Amino acid sequence: MTTPDWRDGKRYLWPLGLLVPLIPFGAWLGVHLTGLSLFWWSGPILVFVVFPLVDTIVGQDTENPPEAAIPGLEADRYYRWCTYLYLPVQYVSLVFAGWLWTRPELGTVDRVGLAVSVGCVSGIAINTAHELGHKREDLERWLSRIALAQTGYGHFYVEHNRGHHVRVATPEDPASSRLGESFWAFLPRSVAGSARSAWKLEFARLRRGGGNPWTWRNDVLTSWAMTLVLFAALAVAFGPAILPYLLIQAVFGFSLLEVVNYLEHYGLSRQREHTGRYEKVRPSHSWNSNQVPSNLLLFHLQRHSDHHTYPTRRYQSLRHFEEAPQLPSGYPLMIILAWVTPLWRRVMDPRVLAHYDGDLSRTNRGPQ
């Protein structure tokens, strides 16, 4: 899409994100051509070794589309198909992995490596579901829930849109991490808190309409049911022996979502106004990153400030804000830092304090 003065320079790069669900095929091909079983671990090698290096080499892009171009960008269905196509490739790769897990030539370590690689696919699929789930079209919302079924995290569809976006950067939000809180303390708090919140939100919605929450109209129940049907179908097709590996990929996949949740709002806080309500969400309440490769991989998720300010805005239109605090690198490297608490705190705690001019009382901080 163009205006007289501007063209989207990344337009034909967005389909590169479709390389992610091809990871299981690439792993099999690598093993087949070289005999090296290390290729079964291609997912984490690509995401946590290759992508941080490429992010560092390629660097950042802070260009924003001009306001005059945004309506055309939003209407251009080419960008939608870049997300729609992730799902069929995602599920074909899952079925292929199911077949691979039954192969006698794979040892237990190889199968676990493949499961973690599939978990990289399903974890990044949650990001695709995130993009689709914010849209108003019924088709995109259904596709979002389908993408989430592989990780058993269908309640994210409810909690993220109606819970997290309302309470973000406050102590009431289970998906907003606190200054001084390690990822390993945040993980169980967010997993349990988000599931409880989703159930409460859906229960309240159905009760307001005078309905029974124990119904197929309950989006949490139907989303979980989709996962049960999917796993049951794969177990029937390939045998129950694949169930442990389906569980591994699901846990690794939703843990990737949670570590991204952890780094997106770490220590950032919305202040209470004199009315007692929290201030409006602003770009300063989310950490941003403009690394080009990982933004292509994640459909601009790293321009998170604009996303929270305008939740229905499509990924190709998201903008960089100078007032938004900036991460020192893209998400792949920041995830590794989040897993190593002393490194994370050494890098990020000073940045949080600098963002608030050294005023600790303005941060979202843990009890410690």
Rank of each mutant, 00 (worst) to 15 (best):
V112L: 14
E159T: 14
R162H: 14
G98N: 12
Y86C: 07
A250T: 00
A169I: 03
G9N: 05
L36W: 15
F252Q: 00
V116N: 00
V292T: 11
P325M: 09
N288V: 15
T3E: 08
H308V: 03
V229W: 09
L46V: 15
V121L: 11
S329V: 06
A169C: 11
S294F: 11
V259M: 03
I248S: 06
L263D: 04
F96K: 10
L22H: 05
L360A: 11
H165D: 06
L106S: 09
H285F: 09
V236R: 07
P44Q: 02
I335P: 00
F156A: 03
R208L: 13
L139W: 10
L19F: 14
P325V: 01
T102E: 05
R145N: 14
V121R: 02
D349R: 07
C120A: 14
E202M: 12
S197C: 09
L333S: 02
L301M: 13
T222R: 08
I146L: 08
E323P: 03
P66Y: 00
W339Q: 07
G133D: 03
P328Y: 04
Q90D: 11
P213H: 02
A125C: 08
L132P: 10
L46F: 15
F156I: 11
T56C: 07
P283I: 06
R103K: 14
L268E: 05
E273K: 11
R319E: 03
C82Y: 07
H274L: 13
V121S: 08
